[in-house]
Each structure stands twice: as structure tokens, then as C-alpha cells.
Amino acid sequence: MAGSGTAHLRPSEEALLRIEGLVVEFPVGRSGLKVHAVSDISLDVLPGETLGLVGESGCGKSTTGRAVMQLVRSQAGSVAFEGHDLTKLKGEELRQVRPKLQMIFQDPISSLNPRRRVRDIVREGLDIWKIGDEDARNAKVTEVLEAVGIDPETAGPRRPHEFSGGQCQRISIARAVATEPKLIICDEPVSALDVSVQAQIINLLQEMKDRYGLTLIFIAHDLAVVKNVSDRVAVMYLGKICEVAGPDELYAAPRHPYTAALLSAIPLPDPAVRAKSTEGVGGEIPSPLAPPSGCRFRTRCPAAAEVCAQEEPQIREVGPDHFVACHFPL
């Protein structure tokens, strides 16, 4: 299958988060079938780093994010955060870790409770964890709202539906940073926004990262966005990792045929360059209910051979800090 193995992981003592052999499957009714959402993936993030997780819908990138947060439970593997395996934690122990991990969601409107006021939404984490006294909490809310470019005076007493999508996403970011987390998982934070607003939010995330010393996992389907924000990019396909590398390296010289196909399919805002699907991959992503044997990408891969159906490629180093799971890397 496109990509098992741990060759791309760095020493575990350096990593803030280290995912090893993560498997997430969802049963489909009582049919006995399973959605293989995430199948044996390993990833790590160093403190202060931004890991970009990119792939098309159904590749398991959002599930990975939620499995890290323990919002969906994994069937196998470990998620070590600061050395503690989160998958082993239950109930109260797990809850105690929560303030250090935060999440920003795709739909800025749906991720804010329509019946609560902006100030209360941002304060929620501080209230839950009883961080500081009343004044300290209010001061913190004011600080983070200002940091994300929302006027705490006028916006504080309002409800989310009075704001635009971009502003709601700013409020979500304020909520995420209020408890001073170490790691924020951004699940498609800009894909529901207009291009002009998208740029504002991306810049804001970068600024927040520097200001609060955050580590980010940035999940998106837009390769250009991921390239812009990431220090390291992992490309996923059908629950597997295809390729891991630094963004500039990955985009300049993709080694996995899927990465190359993805890159060539992006429509560039330049009339001289045509996105050509003929060079890329035909067909569509197979059903995660019954993923192909061997390399999961083989059904759409222009370079597929016999071995790809039989043997799952392991992740291996093909260049300095450039890893790929393919029998025939480009």
C-alpha cells in the first residue's frame, strides 16, 4: 500500500508529537465492511514546526487530525505527545492533556456556537480549566481577540452569525490560542473562505505561530496553501503516506507519481501554463471500503507494475530529508 514505514521519523526525544502505525477504521453499519480511513501511518512534528498534511478528499488527512486529538479513537498505533501516548489515556487523564492541544476547523460558522457570545466562546477554555481569576481571564480574552484583529469591545458581546466567514475564523483562532496550547491542528482552516480572506487568515496563522510559539499541523487540499505555511509536507493518499519532504524540495522535485500528478493538476493563475490532467492521473480515488492491494495508488498510477499490486512500498529516503513510499520513484 502507498506507504507504511517509519524511515522519515526523527528521533523520538526531539519530537513534540510522534504518530506511529496509526490505524483508524470505521465500521459501516452492520455490514461487516470497514472504511479504511487511516491505515498504518507514521508522522512526527518537532516543536515550532509546521507539518503540512495534504491530499484529496477521502485521503484520511482530517481523520488523522481528529485521531491525534483523540476525537476519533484509533484501532492501532500510538500518538505520543510530549512522550505520553494519548491513545492509552482515558477519561480524566485525557481531558487533562486537552488544553495543550487545540483544533481549528474548516467551517468557520459551524465551529462557533450560534447561541453564545464571542467573548464567552473565546473564554470557554479558560473557564473549563479555571485559568486565572475573573480579571485575568477577561484580560486574556481581550488580548487574544486583539491579536487576531477583532475589536474586543464591539465584537465581544455579539453572536457569531453577525460576522463574516473570515472573522469567524479569526474568532476560532483566538479561541484556540487562549489556553496557550503547544500544538494546534488546523483542519482546512481556509478552504471555505474567499481568496482575499484566505490570505489574511494564512498570514494571521503565521503571526500567531511566532507570537505564541506554536507548533502546527496544517491540513489542506490546496497544495499552494500548504507549501506556503509548512516546514515539512506529508502527502497522503487513501489512508497512506506517499511522500514526506520539505516544501520547497517536494514541490521542485516530487518523487512520488501521485505528488507529481497533484502538482500538475493545479490550475495556475498564469495563462501561459496549462494544468493538464492528461499528464496527471485518470479516474478517481478508489473506495476506502476496499482499497487496492499493494500500493494503494497503483490503480491510477502511470508507472504501476506487477510488484505494485503485490507488495506495499515502504517509506525510504531518496534524498536529504526527502522520503517516498514508491517502488518506482520519479
Binding site: 476525537l71 487545540q102 474548516q106 456556537n113
Partner: peptide
């Protein structure tokens, strides 16, 4: 809705999530 997920991710107890 994602705001329920967000509250849980913040560490809110089930009771708090239902209630608030």
C-alpha cells in the same frame, strides 16, 4: 456541529458540552 467537537477538544466534560 464542529463547535461541539471544538468544546470537547478544549477539554469540556460531557455534562458541560450538553449543558452549554
Amino acid at each position: 456541529r464542529e463547535f461541539v467537537l471544538a468544546a470537547r477538544a478544549q477539554g469540556a466534560t460531557h455534562r458541560r458540552v450538553i449543558w452549554r
